[in-house]
């Protein structure tokens, strides 16, 4: 906890005090962070290995996936080190044909889930749910050219107004409130950590 308090004081000193700026403390802190970042990455690598090695040894549920994970992780690392370039034939091939393709596929599957989820979730159960439903449909259609065509035939020159008003007025006001609330909450949490009132990050019981 003392370390947490001291660290936060150093950061505050480096950012908000004249001497901190003069001594360029922030640059030192940034360099330390970058080094810690690299160490944390290595630590994560070791940690992942230990956890999944234990899974395999004890044949816990899904241990086969642990084998796949370790083989993939070390295999790709070795290929990367051996070829020492993004453009290496094997490294590049794995990236282009497996990693990029899988990553894009996972993201694109969301469209199907959303289609099904929208059908199931949007019901006119209450007044609030009905308002949500109507807004969702209007904005969704408004973001596709078909929406423009529909609104144009109904509303003429006002066709862009529905979507723009919802996004530019209703949504913006709500998002501002949420964002400001989140930042105030973040500031309060940071202050609590600095004052030692919040100890969950050091394995404490959480709040006091």
């Amino acid at each position: 906890m003392i370390l947490t308090v001291l660290s936060s004081l150093v950061v505050i000193f480096s950012q908000y005090f004249y001497l901190g700026k003069q001594w360029n403390l922030m640059e030192y802190l940034n360099n330390w962070f970058q080094i810690s970042y690299a160490v944390a990455l290595a630590l994560g690598f070791v940690n992942l290995t230990v956890i999944h090695w234990k899974n395999i040894q004890r044949k816990r549920e899904g241990w086969v996936f642990s084998i796949i994970l370790l083989l993939t992780m070390y295999g790709y690392l070795i290929v990367g080190l051996a070829e020492w370039s993004f453009e290496g034939p094997i490294f590049g091939w794995i990236y282009e044909n497996i990693m990029a393709a899988l990553s894009a596929a996972i993201f694109s599957m969301v469209a199907f889930f959303i289609t099904s989820a929208a059908y199931r979730a949007f019901r006119v159960r209450t007044k609030e749910a009905t308002i949500l439903l109507v807004c969702a449909v209007l904005v969704m259609l408004g973001r596709a050219p078909i929406g423009d065509a529909i609104w144009k035939s109904w509303l003429g020159g006002w066709s862009g107004f529905v979507n723009q008003w919802m996004m530019g007025t209703l949504n913006m006001a709500a998002m501002r409130a949420i964002t400001l609330g989140a930042y105030v909450g973040g500031f309060a949490t940071a202050l609590r950590i600095m004052l030692g009132l919040e100890r969950a990050h050091i394995g404490g019981t959480g709040t006091q």
Binding site: A118, Y119, R120, R123, L133, A144, I146
Partner: peptide, 17 residues
Amino acid sequence: TMSVIALMVTLFIILGN
């Protein structure tokens, strides 16, 4: 594609309701 999917989702929402 965006247009037909948006239209499809809308129709399914209407049917569900």
